[in-house]
Write a protein that binds this DNA or RNA. Structure first.
Lengths: 367, 367
DNA sequence: GTGACAGGTGAATCACAAC
DNA sequence: GGTTGTGATTCACCTGTCA
């Protein structure tokens, strides 16, 4: 059960969403009382104009008032203050996770270090289904960065190595996590059917963090609670939570959501398990990695055609340019062609299918 | 061919490794002269006591916390200075890449923003074969972070979108790159058979950066040259390089290494171009050339609208007059419209996009 | 029930040449 | 330097509808 209470209570208000400014609220809570803090602060995106998809539909940008800061100085001041208040609440062996993007994460990371926190890892959330870059002007922004830090250097923080290894099919958990963004039924909607919060985080992310960095019964604080993903996952996993959220609309959605959560929901565990598909290897990687040289010639399996490799991983043949598949299809006058099995290269007089190189890369990726 | 010259030369010393402190050397080079900077600065923060302040005084270790604080101050000062010197050298439309780990990248990112650089992406190098965390106390540190930034907000930086898309087999390149660490024959060894440099970067990483963010003939500066991966890949790809390196042992290894590199064939360096590079064809030319008749009707791709061609190359639809783009945008009630891909004409019962006619004209212009 | 297909959407610092 | 007009640009999902 969750309750919204007024800020400033001296006791530890477990499993409660507190309204108000997170710095004020935190300053009213008892010191050294919290095992883990998960924080998803405003990113300070600094968006200017409107953005449209190639089909002319409008991108629903994060332009909420709470993400607006007048300058880096103002943002830094805000960051410094909430990090200081948060650090006071942490038990000596507690730890903090903060998530952000390139807009703010460097400010946050520096402020963490300056405040005396000790960074343990930066963890990259690689999104399996990110929004593309619609104008082709930059790389797809396909990840966010999380920083995991202890209260002090040398602290005996909680790290459930074996549990994480088990989650990762017996292999040591790495600092990059591939997880989908929050969509579908998990994404909370308001009365109009619009998304209730612009930046709701997936439960799988919190699941992994709480399994890895807390024990059952631990107290988890989220000072930017939003619609309560941290609280929902904490309840499922038998951890206690404290949420702080300024916007009453978010608090109401979160209350209802957490009310409906059952502890130890088996489904949530399965969401986290990673699917292992055969990794896609772009042909360009053979060139980047020096396995094939730009300018080198490839020969078709039937020896009737040849083409030259270019530095961007495309081929040039007689009046054709394009991918290994496109050039193969054109030369064979076929509707399609599997370039991987069509093309060969020569080494020491031997003709070798390029697919051999792809298999080499895949073998590396298995480890 | 590469030469080591003394620092401070006023002219641009292309394809040269310069000995000396990178800040001093950069301050002696001409402003606005470099297209790209790749920097792999010292990570440093672990090496307490070995860090020197800019005035060369040594940082004292008083206690852990003080030492940590003073280390950050000194590191920030160093970072600020080399980033400032580097920014002076960048052409207005040049860009910079900096690589680091969680020990230093947050300091670097903040300093970049404070110096006026504009971050374009943070890119994660996800190592396919990282060193495991032997003690099981943290996540396997399986990635490093790169920051890509332009000299100013709004600068027209180079981004070869199509070439990168080709490298990735037709899918937009993401901000997370999976590449192996530098091992095997690529890893340079010294006379004793030990690795010549502790943090040699893989050539594949530089290949992707240089293909994506420079054009052939561009000048690439690396102020922390080490054993010269940047120079080697720049030479292969027909870019000019300038390296700065303080340690003579590294310079010697780099000299030898780059000497042995062969540049790729000119045509192999050609890369898939963007459509913007193609010559502009006014729609009116299709009418002038008789490919379309005045009075002829065009149909929208979705068959929902039609419009009539006028002799001056404008269209008339229901209550609209204007260019193919303007009329399309109006009829679709869209903020903009690419008329070339929106409109079709009819010939012998077939519906054909007008872009086919533009391609015919462009093909003629090639000859 | 099932499959095909159309439609929608996600923390985004997202154009540029000609006049 | 400001204004105007051309025309370039998307990936991996999810949902709901209809055959």
């Amino acid at each position: 059960m969750t309750n919204t209470i007024e800020k400033g209570a001296a006791a530890l208000p477990l499993n409660t969403i507190i309204g108000g400014d997170c710095i004020d609220v935190m300053n009213g809570l008892p010191a050294n009382s919290v095992d883990l803090i998960f924080a998803d602060p405003p990113y300070n995106l600094q968006l200017k104009g409107q953005l449209h998809r190639p089909d002319n539909s409008k991108v629903d940008a994060v332009d909420d008032h709470w993400d607006q800061f007048s300058s880096f100085v103002a943002y830094d001041q805000f960051t410094k203050e909430w990090l200081k208040a948060a650090r006071r609440l942490l038990k000596p062996n507690g730890s903090i996770w903060v998530i952000g993007s390139y807009h703010n994460i460097f400010r946050v990371g520096s402020a963490l270090q300056d405040a005396g926190y000790w960074i343990l890892n930066d963890v990259v959330w690689r999104k399996s289904n990110p929004m593309p870059n619609f104008r082709g002007k930059r790389f797809t922004n396909a990840h966010e960065t999380m920083i995991w830090a202890s209260k002090n250097e040398g602290a005996k923080y909680t790290f459930n190595y074996e549990a994480l290894k088990a989650l990762n099919e017996g292999i040591q958990m790495r600092s990059d996590w591939v997880l989908p963004i929050c969509t579908g039924h998990e994404r909370l909607k308001d009365a109009n059917g619009d998304k209730a919060h612009p930046t709701q985080k997936p439960e799988s992310l919190l699941h992994r963090i709480l399994i890895g960095a807390t024990n059952p019964g631990d107290v988890v604080l989220d000072p930017f609670f939003g619609t309560g993903t941290t609280g929902a996952v904490a309840k499922m996993l038998g951890r206690e939570f404290i949420g702080i959220e300024r916007e009453s609309a978010y608090r109401e959605v979160a209350e209802k959501r957490i009310e409906n959560v059952r502890k130890f929901d088996r489904d949530a565990l399965q969401v986290t398990a990673s699917k292992r598909a055969e990794p896609r290897v772009p042909f360009g990687q053979l060139v980047e990695r020096g396995m094939l040289r730009p300018g080198e010639e490839l020969y078709s399996m039937n020896q009737r055609h040849k083409a030259k490799v270019r530095a961007d991983g495309t081929l040039v043949g007689d009046n054709v340019k394009g991918s290994i598949h496109q050039v193969g299809a054109h030369l064979e006058n076929a509707p399609s062609c599997n370039g991987w099995t069509y093309w060969c290269f020569k080494r020491e007089g031997k003709t070798i299918p390029i697919d051999v190189l792809r298999q080499q890369i895949r073998a590396e990726l298995q480890n």
